[in-house]
Amino acid sequence: MTVIDISAFIGRLATCSGETILPFFRTSLTIDNKGRSDFDPVTEADRAAEAVMRRLIKESFPQHGVVGEEFGNENTDAEYVWVLDPIDGTKSFIAGFPIWGTLIALTHRGVPVYGMMNQPYIGERFAGDNKAASYRGPSGERKLGVRRCAGLQDAVLFTTSPRLMNDADRATFGRVESQVRLTRYGGDCYCYAMLAAGQIDLVIETELKPYDVSALIPIIIGAGGIITTWEGGPAYQGGRIIAASDPRVHEAALKLLNS
């Protein structure tokens, strides 16, 4: 497959999943709770969108594997595996806020090589292939690039919610939060898209699954940013994740996270 083939097919997945999701948005939804103790919602829109994408992948690339949030894993030993999160930010989705997105990644031998975050309600797409990243939306098309930030004292930090962290991680996160210029909560995948777009400097989260982050890695790297675990390792298996716009901010935050 060429980059053009991948880009075109992921665009098709984004279009079809978006067309499936939008009729559900800001309507009365049946909401199930997947969580055992915490509220972890899933809707008909999540399931329908993932089913559409899985069907298209099987029709076009039957030899490929699929990892999805709603319907599990298939053929994960394949050379190429698709990693899907039909609605990242379901809590925002059910509340009617448009800070959710569909995450679509293609991995090669386990490593994400192309990713897209699609927000069909606003009409925005953020995509990357580890070498470059791009934006397409109502304002047109452009190359994505992170902004430079000299240190934590100048940084804007995002996390979806500190309440999603355990007590120890929340305290560790607080050490970084106390050093930055501004902290905001919420956003899920949109935080990472805004980092790639040069709007913010740092995203720190915990307990992410591979489908939460795989699509975002090529976008961040392609835009010139850094995304690792808190220990500085590869991020594609999920876990405790830090994304930064500038190596100086990444290094400073890692020191606090591991002090």
Rank of each mutant, 00 (worst) to 15 (best):
I94C: 12
F61Y: 15
R136A: 13
A51K: 15
G151T: 10
R36D: 13
A150W: 02
R136T: 12
A133C: 07
F61A: 11
P112F: 04
G89C: 05
V83G: 02
T76G: 01
V81A: 02
D154G: 09
F93Y: 04
V81Y: 02
A132M: 11
F158P: 00
D46K: 02
R54I: 08
N130H: 04
T30G: 11
G115D: 04
A51L: 14
G151L: 02
R55G: 15
L157G: 11
I87F: 07
L56R: 09
S139T: 13
R136E: 14
L22A: 00
I94Q: 12
T76F: 00
G89K: 05
G140I: 05
T102S: 12
H64D: 15
G96L: 01
S92F: 06
G72A: 05
A133N: 07
R125F: 00
V52Q: 08
L84F: 08
E79F: 03
A127K: 08
F71K: 07
E50S: 05
V83F: 02
N75I: 00
W100Q: 01
G140A: 08
D40V: 15
G72I: 01
R109W: 00
C149L: 07
G151C: 14
G101C: 09
E59S: 15
Y135H: 12
G68I: 02
V81W: 02
V146M: 07
G89F: 06
G101A: 14
L157P: 09
D154T: 10
A155M: 09
T102R: 04
D129Y: 12
A132I: 10
V156H: 13
W100N: 01
C149S: 10
F61D: 04
L29N: 15
M53W: 06
L22W: 00
Q153W: 06
L144Y: 10
S139G: 05
S60W: 07
V81K: 01
R26W: 03
G89S: 07
D40I: 14
R142T: 06
G96P: 01
V81D: 01
F93M: 01
G128K: 03
P41I: 01
F61M: 13
V83H: 02
T30K: 15
I122L: 10
R47A: 11
N130P: 00
P120F: 05
A127S: 13
Q119A: 09
K34T: 08
F61R: 11
A78H: 06
T43D: 13
A45K: 03
P41L: 04
H108N: 12
T90C: 06
V146K: 06
A95W: 01
A49T: 03
L29W: 01
N73A: 14
G101Y: 10
G65E: 05
